[in-house]
Amino acid sequence: MDERQFNFRRMHYEGAEGALIPLLQKAQEEMGYIPIEAIQMIYERTGIPPSEIYGVATFYAQFRLKPVGKYIVRVCHGTACHVANAKSITDAICDTLNIASGETTPDRLFTIETVSCLGCCSLAPVIMINEQTFGNLTTSSVKKVIKRYMKENGK
C-alpha cells in the first residue's frame, strides 16, 4: 500500500482516548475502505492489538473491508420507506447497474447499500448518493437519477 495515501499526520492521532473509531473513520475516508495494512499501521501507532481493531471494524456497519465505488448509493429501508415499497427502488437500482445490493460495479463507480433509516421519512422512498439525498422516488425517477450520475462520469 502506498504510504502517501494514508497519512497518519493528517489523522491527528495524539494518543487521545477513544481514538480507534475516529482513526478507522479517517482511514476509510481517505481510502474508501479499510485494507488490512491500515489495521497493521493503526496497531503500530497505538498498540491496540490487531484482533481488537478487526473486532471493532467488523462490529460497525459503516466500516468496509473491501474497496467501494466512487458513489455509494444508500437505499433507505426504514419503516416509512418500507411501506412506500423501498424494495422496488432497490430492485430498480440493481437493475440499472446490473449488480446486487452490497456489490460494486466492475468500473468501481457505484456501490449499492441498503440502510436502516436516513431520517427523511416524509419523503419516502429515499436514497442517498454519497452525501446527496433524493426523495419521493419512483422506480422510473430513481433510474433517471442513477443515469445522470453515469452520464456525468462519461458512461
Binding site: 477513544g18 473509531i21 475516529p22 478507522l24 473513520q25 460497525y60 456497519a61 459503516q62 466500516f63 440502510v115
Partner: peptide
C-alpha cells in the same frame, strides 16, 4: 462530537 459508525 463523536460520530457513530452505524450500529443501532
Amino acid at each position: 462530537i463523536k460520530e457513530g459508525a452505524g450500529a443501532f
